[in-house]
Design a protein around this nucleic acid. Structure first.
Lengths: 107, 107
DNA sequence: CTAATAAGCAACCAAAAAGTTGCATATTAA
DNA sequence: TTAATATGCAACTTTTTGGTTGCTTATTAG
């Protein structure tokens, strides 16, 4: 389909999905889909679609117990976004610029 | 339209746009549109659309000189993404988990 | 056993996105 | 001044996305 970073970025680029993800992160505990969707002004099926996108990006994991499916946030994949950012960080970080200038001066 | 973080995330969630942005970052100097689009297997107009999306997210700035329009990367807005990530970072950082466990044990 | 609950799946819809072609316009080079 | 170059704009197509409704199925509670 598409690479990991793209999947993750696409997943978090939607505000509703960011809210959904956030709700699951702060819930700390795994929540059944109906309970998650109750917090959103949207049909359960709509929420389910978003949850699938998040799951596909590895940002949540879902496990079944009886007739319920519990969703739990997984923050680790966000590390990939941080890694992607890290390359560009050097260009915006003025402190680093100053350090560079300092080292140039010294060296 | 949409909030800043959403605009930025949407902009970088497209692989072509990430490539475009990267090309401009490593170019260091501002490049005219035709020169940018020459590096991509896409029409100039297609590239222009992507550049507009990046510009709208603040990730590039474009200035006109004669008949040419020069594009330059702006990495600073990525700070907003980093800020968004920072909240979730505590949850994936195992060192922090271990610290938490350590403190629980002590306390 | 039966009714209520939790959920999936498929079809559909509207809007947005990714890209194209065609054409007009301004600037610059010959 | 004429031709070439750099670009924008508008219209159009295809795919993706965000969301819905309707229906089926499995589990659980009375």
């Amino acid at each position: 389909m598409q690479d990991n970073v793209t999947k993750i970025l696409k997943a978090i680029s939607d505000p509703t999905r960011r809210e959904l993800f956030h709700a699951l992160v702060i819930a700390a505990t795994a929540l059944p889909i109906t309970q998650v969707s109750a917090q959103f002004n949207m049909t359960r099926q709509g929420v389910t679609k978003h949850l699938k996108t998040l799951e596909n990006a590895g940002l949540i994991c879902i496990e079944t117990s009886g007739r319920e499916r519990f969703c739990k946030a997984e923050t680790k994949p966000l590390q990939e976004v941080k890694d992607w950012l890290s390359f560009y960080e050097q260009f915006w970080d003025t402190k680093l610029d100053q350090l560079g200038a300092f080292l140039d001066q010294k060296g």
